[in-house]
Amino acid sequence: MIELSGVTKAFGANRVLQRIDLTVPTGTSMVIIGGSGTGKSVLLKCILGLIRPDAGMIRLDGQDVATAEREAFLARFGMLFQGGALFDSLKVWENVAFRLRRGALKRPREEARAIAIEKLRRVGLGPRVADLFPAELSGGMQKRVSLARAICAEPEVIFFDEPTTGLDPIMSGVINALIREIVTEMGATAMTITHDMTSVRAIADHVAMLHGGVIRWTGPVAEMDTTPDPYVQQFIHGRAQGPIESVR
């Protein structure tokens, strides 16, 4: 279970997160929605310890992440970065199998490569791409390679930052199904950031909307359509008029 209480982060005068409270039970899928620039990516990075919050407490299974043993803590996580963040000096399969080639999970080259190719298949990429370099792929393909890397070591907790942005509708469907499958079959805990309402409905158990530095609304995905919250209603229907200003 991931628990955030009072998490606050400012960059200079830009107060991005202002007392975030949120709970994600183990084995469930939480989707974070919210306008761009509201701090969704910053929130995930705070949980991973890549950005240090100014205040507040983040717990994983009851343990404060700030004092957790870093190595063991990170070994439980997988993260798909918004921009892909593939290592461009390494081939696609070496990117995917990065965790399997060094450190505690080190395996022989051929075995790691086979696992990487299998993970690539799951994100809809054939074995042909395994030996290419990331720069030789399209944006959507890079995103999927990155997704394969995030799930490669079968982590308990997985963060997906805009997994379907830049993908065609069919590929989006494949990725949505994959994320859902990872949660349901592997029992992973997932937090996904997305703007795509189809993805929200396909992936989420719970939805949280981030706006103005706080969680505006959170609840089961089934209640999202019926909540009277005007922010959520404006967002999910994509209306220009409403409490959320269109110039931000």
Binding site: L50, E71, L74, A75, M79, Q82, A85, F98, R99, G103
Partner: peptide, 16 residues
């Protein structure tokens, strides 16, 4: 470039 494209963050999350 690795820093601005989040590759360094990615390294950290991959326990490196």
């Amino acid at each position: 470039t690795m820093k601005v494209t989040e590759q360094i963050d990615a390294l950290v999350t991959l326990s490196t």
